[in-house]
């Protein structure tokens, strides 16, 4: 159009565009409604089932048994990739996504969160298994007797084996 001086048009483009940068952090950031940020775990809802731990790609969520009879679900934001897979898989909707992303801190402990669960103890062998809340959840959702859920998987299996043995008339399974 303007022949050899066409490149001057960039000034027009700039004028039309105006200023597009923001005075962040003095102005709110430009984050859309669908942005995936940090997650929040509702410790009152969480039953400590560990599904989220299995789904989490970068091990931002881990679960470990600690101290006397506790199972701890730990969330370390530093590893989180904000994929929200944990939200997808949580059976009780205990995890909520937020739009928070300003997570920088000078204290690394701010990046850790934990949900502490009391583990259930087996009525038969007194061993620890699962968590108290998960036990309650299973009982509520499935038509199983308390007697069954009260035992740890080990004792449950032994009980089952014994039942088999009885039915087969005392034959050994080996």
């Amino acid at each position: 159009m303007m022949g050899k001086l066409g490149f001057v048009k960039i000034l027009v483009i700039a004028a039309e565009a105006g200023r597009v940068t923001r005075k962040y952090p003095y102005e709110p950031p430009l984050v859309s409604s669908d942005f995936r940020g940090k997650i929040e775990i509702d410790e009152t809802k969480c039953i400590g089932c560990g599904s989220c731990v299995l789904a989490c790609p970068p091990n931002a969520l881990v679960m470990s048994d600690e101290g006397e009879g506790y199972r701890v679900l730990k969330y370390f934001v530093g590893r989180c990739i904000f994929c929200w897979r944990c939200i997808d898989v949580c059976p009780v909707d205990a995890i909520k996504g937020t739009r928070e992303f300003e997570l920088a801190t000078d204290n690394v402990e701010d990046l850790d969160e934990a949900v502490i669960h009391k583990r259930a103890s087996c009525t038969e062998c007194n061993g620890l298994y699962s968590t108290v809340k998960q036990k309650a959840y299973v009982m509520e959702k499935a038509p199983i007797t308390e007697n069954y859920v009260d035992k740890c998987p080990e004792c449950r299996r032994n009980k089952l084996l014994r039942a088999f043995e009885k039915r087969r008339g005392g034959e050994s399974l080996e």
């Binding site: 700039a14 597009v20 940068t21």
Partner: peptide, 11 residues
């Protein structure tokens, strides 16, 4: 620099 920023559509 301010002018450059303006032409770049920056603050």
């Amino acid at each position: 620099r301010k002018i450059r920023a303006r032409i770049h559509s920056r603050i």
